[in-house]
């Protein structure tokens, strides 16, 4: 018997109300956090270990994916003490290629976007099949997209049932549920979709595909953190969070971590519960880390492009 949601669950998710002005003020305050010296290095390294290094282009090639895997394993070979990234994130067709490079017991997880990413516009049966095949090919984590059309039309039950079906198809793989907050329109909707996705069994909730603007913002992240906090306090179940898209600077990444620490606390300050969906962010993290050691900013050319 699959997990089901009731009318009262739906009413409860919809009742979530968020005040946009206050959220913006709270975010503005977090952006004022001055993260310097030792604490900066510690958080830069932590951020590096939280990156889902991502390539999601139509033109992706096996060679590009191999390059991405190398970078995720050893972001900057002259500094072997740096942590590796949390995961690589690729399309399903690239999973076997990535797995071959990473090996069976890699410290770097293998994540794949599935469920007709990024639009999600396919019949459910096909999405389920895609997820099964992707997991069979070696994916540790599945990043699915929710059915935004159904959500915005008010058909929450359908969105819920689809997530439940995908979660079931994932088997042992972890499920990240992409809300595509840039299409949800309001922070109230973000709060409701977060509650729905967690209730349906998502292991992570994720802001965006990266294909829609706006992608991740600190405002959206705060609302999702608060939803995760409520879910944890109500059920005891921890859910992870992944902002994705548009996070290119180390400074912004550190402000996400400050907001995370002040909303969810120390237990979430690990790549088990927090990820950045990003690619160019890694090089900026490296530049900042090397600046501490060498006293000046490196040319961007010092690091591989991806």
């Amino acid at each position: 018997m699959p997990l089901q949601c009731t009318e009262s669950d739906i009413r409860r998710w919809r009742a979530a109300s968020v005040d946009d002005m206050s959220v913006a003020a709270r975010v503005a305050r977090v952006r004022k956090r001055s993260i310097k010296t030792e604490s900066k290095v510690r958080l830069l390294r932590l951020a590096l270990s939280m990156v889902d290094l991502t390539t999601l282009e139509g033109a992706d090639s096996p060679e590009r994916v191999r390059g991405l895997c190398h970078k995720a394993l050893r972001p900057h070979p002259p500094m072997p003490e740096l942590p590796s990234c949390a995961a690589v994130c690729v399309y399903p067709t690239m999973v076997a290629t990535a797995r071959a490079v990473l090996g069976a017991d890699s410290p770097v997880k293998l994540a794949a976007v599935a469920t007709a990413f990024p639009s999600g516009q396919l019949p459910l049966a096909l999405k389920v099949q895609e997820v099964r095949e992707t997991v069979a090919a070696g994916a540790d984590e599945i990043d699915m997209v929710i059915n935004r059309g159904a959500f915005l039309s008010g058909d929450y039950a359908r969105v819920f049932d689809e997530i439940v079906a995908i979660k079931d198809a994932c088997g042992p793989a972890h499920l990240k549920v992409i809300l595509e907050t840039g299409e949800l329109g309001t922070l109230d909707n973000v709060a409701a979709a977060s509650r729905l996705a967690m209730a349906a069994g998502g292991d992570f909730i994720k802001t965006s595909t990266g294909k829609i603007q706006p992608a991740a913002t600190l405002e959206v992240a705060l609302v999702m953190f608060e939803a995760i906090r409520e879910h944890f306090l109500e059920t005891g179940v921890r859910v992870g969070m992944k902002p994705a898209g548009g996070i290119r600077s180390a400074k912004l990444a550190l402000h996400y971590l400050a907001l995370l620490a002040e909303t969810l606390g120390a237990d979430w300050m690990t790549n088990e519960w927090f990820r950045f969906g990003a690619s160019s962010l890694v090089n900026d993290l490296l530049r900042q880390l090397l600046w501490r050691d060498e006293g000046y900013y490196q040319s961007p050319r010092r690091f591989s492009v991806d």
Partner: peptide, 23 residues
């Protein structure tokens, strides 16, 4: 899951979660 967990364990480790060097 809620019934299986000790509700006291359900608090967030907020104090001290963000260590910042003096600025």
């Amino acid at each position: 899951v809620s019934t299986k967990q000790d509700p006291r364990a359900r608090e967030l480790a907020l104090a001290g979660a963000l260590e910042l060097s003096p600025s």
